[in-house]
């Protein structure tokens, strides 16, 4: 046995292989089973995907680093459930590439913030948080209301997400820019296509208060308002436990 190790360390390549083998066991054992299971991710056939506008908002949420201060993962603890709502299920983030569970709550959890405040509140809050919440330490994001949203390439985004497993249809991909415009412009002709493709529960609204002009603010507010609303699984699941 010691001979083996002696050869190992004399031969650098053998040593390299030993390190790789020894170090990869843990990851394999913990990650591989997560892919074999039905229990890890509860199924919900009715769960919908993000609309192009919400997806654009999610990308801005990522761009601005919101995840550094806001989690989207309500833990199975009594005070969290009372403060934020039913605890998060794995299924709720199954279309999240990548997930935004977060690791720090400098601000509150946002997993179920959708519908909790009005669009108007969100817009005012994002333009200057301290106008609405005295004592907040959140940065102000006034440029969101000024920047027009880039919608021309949203079809490519949907197509890329389909490659990694999100079930966007050809029709959704082809109409992505129109749907992004329509969701933020209730009076426009494109608005009806959004509910047709993404379901009647999809909110169509002039999120930033200005119809027919799609800004980054529209996208972010649309995203915030859908958080926790893509599936009803967490509410119906009740106290059902998690996997083994």
């Amino acid at each position: 046995m010691p001979e083996v190790h002696r050869k190992l360390e004399r031969n650098a390549i053998g040593f390299v292989l030993a390190i790789i083998v020894v170090s990869s066991i843990g990851g394999l054992v913990e990650i591989a089973p997560l892919y074999t299971i039905d229990e890890t991710v509860e199924s919900d056939p009715n769960m919908r995907v993000y609309t192009p506008l919400e997806l654009a908002g999610r990308n801005i949420y990522i761009r601005e680093g919101c995840y550094a201060c806001h989690s989207q993962m309500i833990r199975t603890l009594r005070d969290e459930v009372e403060r934020y709502g039913p605890y998060s299920l794995a299924v709720e983030s199954k279309y999240d590439h990548p997930m935004l569970w977060g690791s720090k709550r400098t601000g509150p959890d946002l997993a179920r913030v959708g519908g909790k405040y009005s669009d108007f509140w969100h817009v005012a809050h994002l333009i200057n948080p301290r106008d609405v919440v005295a004592g907040s330490v959140m940065p102000a994001y006034p440029w969101l209301a000024r920047n027009p949203l880039k919608i021309s390439d949203l079809g490519d985004h949907l197509a890329a997400l389909r490659k990694v497993g999100v079930p966007y249809t050809d029709e959704m991909i082809a109409n992505a820019p129109a749907d992004a415009f329509g969701q933020a412009s209730p009076d426009a002709s494109q608005a009806s296509g959004v509910t047709e493709r993404y379901g009647n529960d999809t909110t169509v609204s002039a999120f930033d208060g200005v119809p027919n002009r799609v800004t980054e603010m529209d996208a972010v507010v649309a995203y915030l308002q859908v958080l926790g609303k893509l599936t009803k699984a967490a509410k119906t699941e009740g106290a059902a436990g998690q996997g083994g």
Binding site: N59, S93, K94, M99, A160, K163
Partner: peptide, 22 residues
């Protein structure tokens, strides 16, 4: 998976709970 070769944005192949573990 990059959205396109002319842009910086990409989407991780992992999602949700698997992504969290990875």
């Amino acid at each position: 998976v990059p959205v396109s070769l002319t842009g910086a944005k990409s989407y991780s192949i992992y999602s949700g709970v698997q992504d969290a573990m990875v």
